[in-house]
Simulated assay, not measured.
Amino acid sequence: MTSCQKIRPGANAYAGKQGFSYFEGISRETMGAQAVCMHLLTIPPGGRARAHKHATHETAIYVLSGQAVMFWGERLEHRMETGAGEMIYIPADVPHLPWNPGPDPVTAVIARTDPHEQESVVLLPELDGLVE
């Protein structure tokens, strides 16, 4: 029998391959989700992820607070500024690198079609030096 469940973000945090700490949320590991994960992320001022992509999985982000910048594209050649109240869609396999130039933390809800969340993360170290 399946059942509805709830979780309060912040009870457990884990270090993602991308270089950020995530608050554990909905995933296969926590809820038995089959096709989705959803986590809460806070990026501290100056925080920057490693360049990465999510193999075969789409990502949707809702920025709750703060201002961030995301570089994206095959060579991280595109720049997108985002702020509270905005949503971002990242197609599967698109390289990206989020960064918080500060001075305030950025908090966002992140949903992905990968129920394991970290399983589809592919680091792209060859792109890290392209963004300063």
Rank of each mutant, 00 (worst) to 15 (best):
residue 52 H to W: 01
residue 23 F to N: 13
residue 81 E to M: 02
residue 44 P to V: 04
residue 123 L to I: 07
residue 12 N to A: 12
residue 113 T to R: 05
residue 6 K to S: 15
residue 63 V to I: 15
residue 68 A to G: 15
residue 21 S to H: 11
residue 50 R to Y: 00
residue 14 Y to Q: 07
residue 101 P to Y: 06
residue 65 S to F: 04
residue 78 H to R: 14
residue 71 F to Y: 15
residue 18 Q to L: 13
residue 72 W to N: 04
residue 37 C to I: 01
residue 113 T to P: 05
residue 99 W to F: 13
residue 3 S to P: 00
residue 74 E to H: 08
residue 12 N to S: 12
residue 90 I to Q: 12
residue 84 A to N: 02
residue 97 L to M: 14
residue 33 A to I: 06
residue 21 S to N: 15
residue 117 E to V: 12
residue 99 W to M: 07
residue 65 S to E: 15
residue 127 L to E: 09
residue 46 G to W: 05
residue 94 V to I: 14
residue 84 A to R: 04
residue 28 R to C: 09
residue 75 R to K: 15
residue 31 M to Q: 14
residue 31 M to D: 02
residue 86 E to V: 04
residue 70 M to N: 07
residue 82 T to F: 05
residue 93 D to R: 11
residue 42 T to G: 05
residue 28 R to F: 06
residue 24 E to D: 14
residue 17 K to E: 11
residue 84 A to P: 10
residue 102 G to Y: 00
residue 64 L to Y: 01
residue 71 F to P: 01
residue 33 A to R: 06
residue 27 S to H: 05
residue 46 G to L: 05
residue 22 Y to E: 02
residue 31 M to I: 03
residue 117 E to L: 10
residue 28 R to S: 08
residue 64 L to N: 07
residue 23 F to C: 10
residue 128 D to I: 04
residue 118 Q to V: 09
residue 112 R to L: 05
residue 63 V to G: 04
residue 38 M to R: 03
residue 116 H to N: 13
residue 126 E to N: 14
residue 58 E to H: 11
residue 44 P to L: 12
residue 34 Q to P: 00
residue 42 T to K: 11
residue 19 G to E: 01
residue 101 P to Q: 07
residue 89 Y to P: 01
residue 74 E to K: 09
